[in-house]
């Protein structure tokens, strides 16, 4: 490559963080059964009256999660889009995000005032993460019943997500999990990035997570202003 070669020829301005306008897109990822859909439903209930919001679900197989949201979140049908992921939920949120972008853009076109879109991944493993071409921030949800060594094991979801949520703290005594260990290990692998230990069973409003999402919406609105 000649020394004066302009590297700008290879990139353009439409990169992560430069998307102008539109709602905040929040990715919700994590292993099967950790509580992603329950968290999405809780956020819809808590934030639905404050924000113009919608949800994209990435079930591995059926419209199970979308149906759950319709029943539990009092979210109208036209605010929920389900995406088929071709047996590869991970590919659809990271490597080829086309189907999810289509769903998000469909919701944005249908609801021009949209302020917040939750993109819930299909249940995957600890290596799952969202492309920042699809979401602005991402939450990784693990649960206490998966074992208190999960934060120590790391993986991109645990170490690099913008918020780590450790759900089902109410089960800790039953499964012999040490919450202090999980809190300490999370801090070690995540540095300054926040971790919340919650129980959606005890706090169905997901109060702390909702507060974190509010701060993200405010930050985006300030950035766009």
């Amino acid at each position: 490559m000649p020394p004066d070669h302009n590297l700008d020829d290879y990139v353009d301005a439409y990169e992560h963080g430069h998307r102008h306008g539109g709602p905040l897109r929040v990715g919700l990822g994590g292993p099967v059964g950790s509580g992603k859909t329950a968290l999405a439903a809780a956020l819809c209930r808590t934030l639905g009256a404050e924000y113009d919001l919608a949800v994209v679900t990435n079930d591995i197989y059926t419209t199970e999660d979308a149906d759950f949201l319709r029943r539990n979140a009092v979210l109208p049908d036209d605010r929920i889009e389900a995406v088929q992921t071709g047996c590869c939920p991970h590919t659809a949120i990271r490597d080829d995000i086309t189907a999810n972008l289509d769903a998000v853009e469909l919701l944005e076109a249908r609801h021009p005032g949209l302020e917040l879109v939750l993109v819930e991944s299909g249940g995957d493993n600890l290596t799952a993460s969202f492309s920042y071409g699809l979401v602005d921030v991402q939450v990784f949800v693990v649960d206490v019943a998966g074992g208190d060594k999960v934060p120590r094991k790391g993986g991109p979801g645990v170490t690099a997500s913008d918020l780590l949520v450790v759900n089902k703290t109410d089960l800790a005594p039953l499964v012999g999990a040490d919450l202090d260990v999980m809190r300490r290990d999370s801090a070690v692998v995540r540095g300054d990035k926040p971790t919340l230990l919650i129980s959606l069973r005890e706090d169905p409003a997901a109060t702390e997570v909702a507060e974190w999402v509010r701060a993200q919406v405010r930050a985006r609105q300030l950035q766009q202003a």
Binding site: G86, T91, A92, D95, D96, T98, D102
Partner: peptide
């Protein structure tokens, strides 16, 4: 097939 154009979600 890695070109991110959404082909992986269609089975033809």
């Amino acid at each position: 097939s890695r070109l991110p154009a959404g082909g992986h979600t269609h089975s033809g």
